[in-house]
Design a protein around this nucleic acid. Structure first.
Length: 332
DNA sequence: TGTTGGACTGCTGACTGGAT
DNA sequence: ATCCAGTCAGCAGTCCAACA
């Protein structure tokens, strides 16, 4: 005899409100999150990889959600992978729900008259800018009750998170405006090639492309979005470089470390490398055309419901960018 | 009140089948 | 041949009524 409390039998004659109550009671919110990732990735396998789960686990989660809701959410017959009408509706509701739930983090006690709450800002790589630091510093002095959570992610993941309304704003590398998002030029970073003290080209001011071509290099791995690559990759492809990859990282700090440790040459924002060049730890390699500009875009979702903290942060940052007196732009 | 053990849930790896 | 989604068996963790 089972000791487990039996589930109430389904009552096919129950009224709608009872069904809704039952659904709310049983619904696992993790299934909603899984569905949002599946919809964003348009693939169960890719969603599984992103959620660090196996493909069957995600497939079964989707199946459970569809059974709970009583509707097929994704038409996955054959090679097709399209949201059904019910799937589109559930996705919209899920996005709005997550947007509201994200504001729970902004609940705080006291100081009702002050703006308070939390901001979740996603950035690609490392933003090196005294002006940006100055803005954050001033913002904190003015709004000490606002908490700022900054996470480093790949550009593609930043776009996805902002589309799903799970982050306030993002700073990423993207040329085309992502679907349903607004964007504004946040910062133009100038990149150049550098090597460390132990590198054979250290101290050489007349390095040619032919000399640089066979050298081992360090690659930045996290900024791929569609056809957008960091300048090192573009430059290497353009000039047919032959050197082997010696190391890679998705962190600019680690790229810097690898260059300093002599793993090869690599591409860094000039602002970031400046003090290391002055101290003699880095050497600027400047073959013809060995410089590139990368635009960092500020993106946000205009359909997202923001808390007071998020509204304040966004309006102040966008206003600064609009006025054009924000020296985040075109620094070198 | 703490422990036990059956039922349940959700995961994984292995495998299968369809589409390209 | 390869990719992707679904199915299945087995496993581990959790829940909770029953019991000492």
């Amino acid at each position: 005899m089972s000791r487990y409390r039996p589930k109430p039998e389904l009552d096919v004659d129950a009224d709608a409100s009872l069904n809704i109550q039952r659904l709310m009671h049983r619904l696992d919110w993790n299934l909603i999150r899984t569905f949002m990732v599946i919809a964003a990735e348009r693939s169960i396998s890719r969603a599984a990889a992103r959620l660090f789960l196996s493909q069957p686990a995600v497939s079964l989660a989707l199946k459970r959600l569809e059974e709970n809701l009583g509707h097929q959410l994704i038409d996955r017959s054959g090679s097709k992978f399209n949201l059904t009408t019910a799937g589109e509706q559930v996705l919209e509701i899920a996005k709005d729900t997550y947007s509201v739930l994200a504001q729970l983090g902004g609940v705080s006690e006291g100081a009702a008259s002050d703006v308070s709450g939390n901001i979740r800002l996603l950035v690609v790589g490392q933003i090196v800018s005294p002006a940006y630091d100055e803005f954050l510093s001033g913002f904190y002095r003015q709004y000490p009750n606002i908490g700022v959570q900054i996470e480093t992610l790949r550009s593609s993941d930043i776009v996805s998170a902002v589309q799903q309304k799970t982050a306030t704003m993002g700073v990423c590398i993207t040329k085309a405006i992502p679907y349903r998002l607004d964007q504004k030029l946040f910062m133009r970073q100038n990149y150049a090639f550098y090597c460390g003290r132990s590198h054979s080209l250290y101290g050489r001011s007349d390095v040619t492309l032919e000399e640089l071509s066979p050298e081992r290099y360090i690659n930045f791995t996290s900024t791929q979005v569609g056809d957008t690559f960091l300048p090192l990759n573009l430059f290497r492809e353009k000039h047919g470089f032959t050197g082997r990859l010696s190391a890679s990282s998705d962190s600019l700090s680690e790229i810097l470390r690898l260059i300093l440790c002599g793993f090869g040459y690599g591409c860094l924002p000039m602002q970031m490398a400046e003090k290391y060049v002055e101290s003699g730890d880095l050497w600027l390699l400047s073959p013809d055309g060995g410089f590139a500009e990368v635009d960092l875009q500020l993106i946000w979702n205009p359909e997202q419901k923001l808390n007071a903290a998020e509204k304040t942060f966004m309006s102040e940052l966008v206003a600064l960018l609009d006025r054009g007196d924000f020296s985040l732009i075109s620094q070198s």
